[in-house]
């Protein structure tokens, strides 16, 4: 399968009065057509910055973003409109991502107007069709966002993202503000859309259990770096990186079977350091239970432990590439 999105040595630094924040620090990955890649990390790991750089809210400090082979490493104002139509985003909080002073109909019509899709009647039909797709009643056209529940609002946000028939959708924690019973419905809907429209999802989240059930591949980020990337099943059955193991063993689960899935308990210790002055060498060494001398001096290179399973850790051999 061809990659729809390629990220190469992407860096995004922010210059502040207290120093340079290295939010994303040389990461590379690709996303295939029709695939879901879970980008998982704790707050401050750089996962959202990565998403915002791909959509064009930030221009990269260096590195390349290729969409269908075309370089799009420019801010959104310099991107051709056809490209914006093909890449869409769903934000975390539908309470603030929908304009409170517009009706649902106006909100869903806006992307169609911007991209000059159809005339007034066509757009009207399309808005109704979009509502039907996300299983909301037609008369919601006249409602304001505050009259809807959190789950319904997020469905409107999803419908808006799909209005322009995109190829790549960035999902930035789309269900983390919602209850689990509603999350289930939204996730299943997203999976159906992916199948029907061959969508590619870059799924940003902190929820590993969710990724086990949704993603084809999972990448873990820590302090601006990717530390492990693997196919989802492999990732959970055979994690390598000490940080991945710490994350997995920290997850509260609901059954004994799941408890057995967790790696041997790695006691979580320390907190994520500031990205202004990230620790030298491996970013994770300050919290790592298996660190040795080299970890605080040299940045670990990429190690291919199996086909498609990449780890950035000194424990698993010498630097191979990248």
């Amino acid at each position: 399968m061809e990659p729809i999105l390629e990220i190469k040595d992407l860096k995004k630094y922010f210059v502040t009065s207290r120093g340079t924040v290295r939010a994303v620090d040389e990461i590379s990955f690709e996303l295939l057509r029709g695939e879901t890649l879970g980008l998982v990390g704790e707050s401050g790991s750089g996962k959202s910055t990565t998403a915002y750089t791909v959509i064009g809210i930030y221009a990269p400090t260096s590195g390349k973003i290729l969409f269908r082979g075309q370089d799009i490493s420019v801010p959104v104002s310099k991107r051709p409109k056809t490209l914006k139509r093909a890449i869409q985003i769903v934000f975390q909080d539908p309470g603030t991502s929908l304009n409170p002073r517009r009706t649902i109909g106006q909100i869903l019509e806006l992307p169609l107007k911007v991209h000059r899709i159809g005339d007034r009647n066509d757009r009207r039909r399309r808005v109704v069709e979009l509502l039907r797709m996300v299983e909301l009643p037609e008369d919601y056209i006249y409602k304001a966002p505050h009259m809807l529940g959190g789950g319904e609002r997020q469905m409107v946000a999803i419908a808006r993202a799909l209005a322009t028939e995109p190829e790549l959708v960035i999902l930035d924690e789309p269900t983390s503000a919602l209850d689990v019973s509603i999350q289930a419905k939204i996730i299943n809907m997203l999976l159906d859309f992916q199948r029907e429209m061959n969508l590619s999802y870059l799924f940003i989240t902190h929820d590993l259990s969710l990724m086990r059930n949704v993603a084809h591949r999972v990448a873990i980020m820590y302090l601006g770096k990717i530390c492990e990337l693997a196919p989802a099943v492999e990732f959970f059955e055979n994690p390598y990186h000490p940080y991945t193991k710490m994350l997995l063993s920290s997850i509260p689960v609901v059954s004994e079977e799941e408890e057995k899935m967790k790696p041997e308990k790695i006691i979580s210790q320390g907190e994520i350091p500031s990205p202004v002055n990230p620790p030298p060498g491996c970013r994770f060494h300050t919290r790592c239970t298996e660190r040795n001398g080299i970890c605080s001096q040299e940045l670990p290179g990429m190690v291919r432990v199996r086909e498609g399973h990449l780890v950035w850790c000194h424990l698993f051999g010498k630097k191979e590439e990248g």
């Binding site: 529940g149 789950g151 319904e152 689990v180 019973s181 509603i182 999350q183 289930a184 419905k185 996730i187 299943n188 999976l191 929820d207 590993l208 259990s209 969710l210 086990r212 059930n213 949704v214 099943v233 959970f236 997995l248 997850i251 689960v253 609901v254 059954s255 079977e257 799941e258 899935m261 967790k262």
Partner: peptide, 22 residues
């Protein structure tokens, strides 16, 4: 029971249907 089903599991198996309505 609906709530238990809807929780994503580490063991996989997809996401069960949620609880309809709100």
């Amino acid at each position: 029971r609906g709530l238990m089903r809807a929780v994503p599991k580490l063991t996989g198996g997809g996401i069960a249907e949620g609880i309809p309505g709100r």
